[in-house]
Every structure is written in C-alpha cells, then in structure tokens.
Simulated assay, not measured.
Amino acid sequence: MADFKVIHKTKYNYDDTVAYCHNIAHMYPLTTTHQDCYRTHVTVNPKPVVSSFRRDYFGNQVFLFSVEDPHRFLEVVVESTVRTHQSFDFDLSKSSAWENIYSMIHESSLDLDLQAIEFIQPSPFVTLKQSYADFAKMIFSENKPVFVGALELTQYIYRNFKYDPKATNINTPLEQVLLERKGVCQDFSHLMIAALRSLKIPARYVSGYLETIPPPGVEKLQGTDATHAWVSVYCPTLGWLDFDPTNGKMITEEYIITAIGRDYSDVSPLKGILFGGGKHKLKVEVDVIREQI
C-alpha cells in the first residue's frame, strides 16, 4: 500500500491568439481494486466559461471545459491524492488456456465477459494482422495459460525492444515498431495489444502514472515524472490483470491508473478543438510524490 500526490501540469503557448477552445481531459485517477482516489482538483487558466464532469463510455472520469475568451496560452493543472494497493497475488498458471478464451466469453452470459468482446476488435491505433499473431505465437504455445503467456510476452518486449523517444511519434505504424524494435511505452502497449487481439485474447490500453526513483545520491527533480501506458489482459475466470511491456513486469503499487480504453485515442490526457492559435509550444510537467502513511 502506498499514498501518492500527483501533480500534472500542461501548458500550451500559441503564436497567435486563440479565439476559443473546447477540451476534454482524462487526468482523473480512477477508483478501482488497484487504487482509491480520494481527491482531485483541477485549475484551468484562463478560466473556462463552461465546465462539467461526466463518465465516458469506458467508465473513466472526464473533465470537459470551454475557454471562450481570446487567449495566447492555456494551462491545466490537476492535483490528485491516491492510495494504491499491492497487486493481487495468485498463481498465473491457474488462468485459462489462451485458445479457450474466445469461446468462453462468447458462450457466457456474464456482463464482464460480454464487455470483454469489444477488446478483441481492431481500434484506431490497433490493427489486427497475421504478422502480429505470428509475433505472439512465439510466446503462446499450445494450451499455455493466458496470464503466463501475457507475462512472457511482456518480458520479451522489454528484453528485445529499445526504449527510444526519438524513434516514433503518435502516427508511427505498428509494423515499423515491430520491424525496428524501437519506441516508447505507447508503442509497446499498442503492439502487445495488437498481438493479443490477433489471437482473439481481449486486451485494453491503460493510461496513468508511474513513480520514478532516481539513482542513489541523486535528488529527484521537480516535474520530471511522466504519463505512462501499459496493457490489461482478460481471463474469464479471473478478470483483468495489468502488464507493463516497457518495464517487463506486472504492475505494482507504484502504478496509478487514470483511464482505460481500446487504445490511446480513447484516453488522451488532453485533447480538443481550438479556433486560431497558429503554431504552439507544449510543456508538460508531472510529479508523482510518495507520501508517508
């Protein structure tokens, strides 16, 4: 169990005046079996004329706001207090064989199983191809328990792919990521999801934060944490379990979940429509601060 204070600052500076803008933010940590979110406060400057909260289709807490006064910058600061829990400890080998997952959820009448069907389908950033299925089958041998295979695939990506922020951008095709074996957490998560879905295993995209710890003797700098992404995999008899291919492990108490969706397009921290502005500069600062319990 761990308590965290999370501060997420986003600032846009525009070359020209923005007449008005409409935005949606996925920056509110969820309350789940993994964590409890006790407080979230958002500050927007310039002050919005209209703002509201709602749950989206996937159950995420979203903040919608409109700034209707002319402005040359937009700053959004979200402060949250979250308590995370130790990950549920059980034998991964007790999960169902991966080949049986598809038939199990289609023959079930349980809501959770039926909802999982959606996460076998392609989505805007995740296509399904035989090449991705072949990639997964290097790991998923016959009758392998689905969570055992998911962890092995997680570790394979961690060992064989290079983390390189300059190698990709939001529009880099997954084929390139698979071929060049370079990218960032978003790329590795999308690739793992594509591989699993190509085997008809439900997988969803998780966005959130990860506590980072500097080397011994090095002071942690303010604003140097970042948003993170990982993968949630479904087994009908056990539910959803989260795996981080960027770090080669299952999630632990230092992970904080903000939103869950099919891929990045469903959970972008901040997106919207603006009128005017021209080119812009973006600055994002994230602090994940562990507090004493």
Rank of each mutant, 00 (worst) to 15 (best):
H71P: 00
V77C: 00
V78G: 00
E79W: 09
T81D: 08
T84A: 04
Q86I: 13
F88A: 14
D89Y: 12
D91F: 10
S93V: 13
K94Y: 04
S95T: 03
S96R: 15
A97T: 04
W98I: 06
S103C: 14
M104V: 10
S109W: 11
D111G: 05
Q115A: 13
P122R: 04
P124T: 06
F125K: 09
T127K: 02
T127H: 03
L128R: 04
K129M: 04
Q130P: 10
S131Y: 13
F135L: 08
F140D: 00
E142M: 13
E142G: 09
P145R: 08
V146E: 00
F147C: 07
L151W: 02
L151Y: 01
Y156W: 11
I157D: 00
Y158K: 11
N160K: 10
N160V: 11
K162W: 11
Y163A: 02
D164W: 10
K166F: 05
K166P: 01
K166Y: 10
K166S: 05
T168A: 09
N169G: 07
T172C: 12
R181E: 12
Q186T: 13
F188D: 05
M192P: 05
I193K: 04
I193L: 02
L196I: 07
R197P: 04
S198H: 09
P202E: 03
A203P: 02
Y205H: 08
G208N: 05
G208K: 06
G208E: 00
